[in-house]
Amino acid sequence: MTQFHPPRLLRNAHLQSILASTRLRKLRIGRRARLLQAASREVLVECRDGTKLLGEYAEQENDSRGLVVLIHGWEGSSKSTYLLSAGSALYQAGYSVFRLNQRDHGPSHHLNEELFNSTRLSDVLGALEWIQKAFPHQRNYLAGFSLGGNFSLRVAANLKELPISLDQVVAVCPVLNPVNTMEALDKGWWVYEKYFVRKWKRSLKTKLQHYPELGYEQDLLTLRSLREMNHFFVPRFTQFKDAQTYLLAYAIIGDALSHLQAPCHIIAAEDDPICGAEDLPNLAKHPNLTIETTAHGGHCGYVSNFRLDSWIDQRLLDLFNQN
Rank of each mutant, 00 (worst) to 15 (best):
Y216S: 10
L125I: 09
Q92Y: 03
L223F: 02
Q239V: 14
F116T: 02
L221P: 04
Q239G: 13
L128Q: 05
S118R: 04
R139H: 14
A33V: 00
R28W: 04
Q138N: 14
L10N: 08
A156H: 06
I266P: 02
Q168L: 08
Y302R: 11
P281T: 09
Q60A: 06
Q60G: 08
K241I: 01
A269S: 15
L166K: 10
A249Y: 05
R236K: 13
D49W: 10
L54D: 00
C47L: 09
P273F: 04
R154I: 07
Q138R: 15
S21H: 12
I266E: 01
R32D: 14
F240A: 05
S78V: 02
D167I: 04
L67M: 15
G301D: 01
Q244P: 02
A39Q: 13
P107G: 05
N288V: 00
A268R: 00
M1A: 13
A269T: 11
Q239L: 10
R65H: 13
V45A: 01
S40H: 03
L115T: 07
N230R: 07
V45F: 03
R315G: 01
R103V: 05
L121V: 09
I291F: 02
I253R: 05
Y95L: 08
K205Y: 12
V68P: 00
L208A: 09
T22D: 07
A277I: 06
N12G: 12
D313R: 01
P163C: 00
R224F: 00
M1D: 14
Q37L: 13
A277W: 01
T2E: 14
G215V: 10
G126C: 11
C275P: 10
Q261L: 00
I267F: 12
C47N: 15
P136A: 02
D255P: 14
N282C: 05
Q261C: 00
H296L: 06
G301S: 03
N321W: 13
Y95W: 11
G76P: 08
S108W: 05
H110K: 07
D167H: 14
D279T: 04
H296W: 14
L257C: 09
N140Q: 13
K205I: 13
Y211H: 15
Q16T: 13
Q92R: 15
K205E: 15
I164A: 04
A171L: 08
I164G: 00
Y302H: 12
Q239Y: 09
G254M: 06
R202L: 02
D123G: 06
E61W: 06
Y216T: 14
D242L: 11
S108M: 04
C47Q: 12
P212Q: 09
P235I: 11
F306N: 15
Y211W: 15
A20I: 06
E56V: 01
T2A: 09
Q37F: 01
F233L: 15
L223E: 05
D272Y: 10
F196P: 06
